[in-house]
């Protein structure tokens, strides 16, 4: 019966996550991806049979007789454990992207010749520009180096 409850949980996590991703706000995007990654982790976990049992930890190595009938499936646990950490890494990377993009958009908005429509997939009036990467002249370089404050300036 655990299958049904797990299925409901996964379905709810995916549905809310997908809905958040579909919103325009980049912050909702991050929340949505976090939600979906939780869903994926539970989904992977349900690939075991979800029967009741004890954790797959052998009580005493010396007296272990090979009785594993009460153990739950350890393999999905191992898979999900790494998945949790990796999805956190990916979410963190995405947060970096969004924060960087925010910096660029701020700069862009302050430019004197700022147009009303920009090629920003988050934007309300985003549109597709064909052949955008074709020519390096399409970009205007603002600053070539990300300046790290010198040791003396920090204190």
């Amino acid at each position: 019966m655990s299958g049904l409850t797990a299925a409901i949980l996964v379905g709810a996590l995916f549905a809310t996550g997908a809905y958040l991703i579909l919103r325009r706000d980049p912050i909702k995007l991050i929340l949505g991806l976090t939600m979906v990654s939780y869903g994926v982790n539970v989904l992977l976990f349900t690939s075991s049979t979800l029967r009741k049992g004890i954790p797959p930890v052998i009580a005493d190595k010396k007296t272990f007789t090979g009785d594993i009938s009460q153990f739950v499936d350890p393999l999905p646990q191992a898979l999900v454990l790494t998945a949790i950490v990796i999805s956190f890494g990916i979410v963190a990377f995405l947060v970096v992207l969004v924060s960087r993009r925010n910096m660029l958009v701020e700069q862009y908005g302050k430019a004197p010749d700022a147009p009303t429509a920009i090629n920003d997939p988050f934007g309300a009036t985003a549109h597709y520009l064909s052949g955008l990467d074709a020519d390096p002249d399409d970009y205007e370089w603002v600053d070539d180096t990300f300046r790290e404050p010198a040791q003396s300036e920090r204190s």
């Binding site: 990377f93 960087r100 090629n119 520009l129 020519d135 600053d143 990300f146």
Partner: peptide
């Protein structure tokens, strides 16, 4: 990503014209 150089896009009108002529 954090260390990459900053750039901004040229106004789209220019970009579109440029890519049209390039095409």
């Amino acid at each position: 990503v954090l260390r990459s150089a900053l750039y901004r896009l040229r106004p789209p009108a220019t970009v579109e014209n440029a890519s049209d002529t390039a095409k």
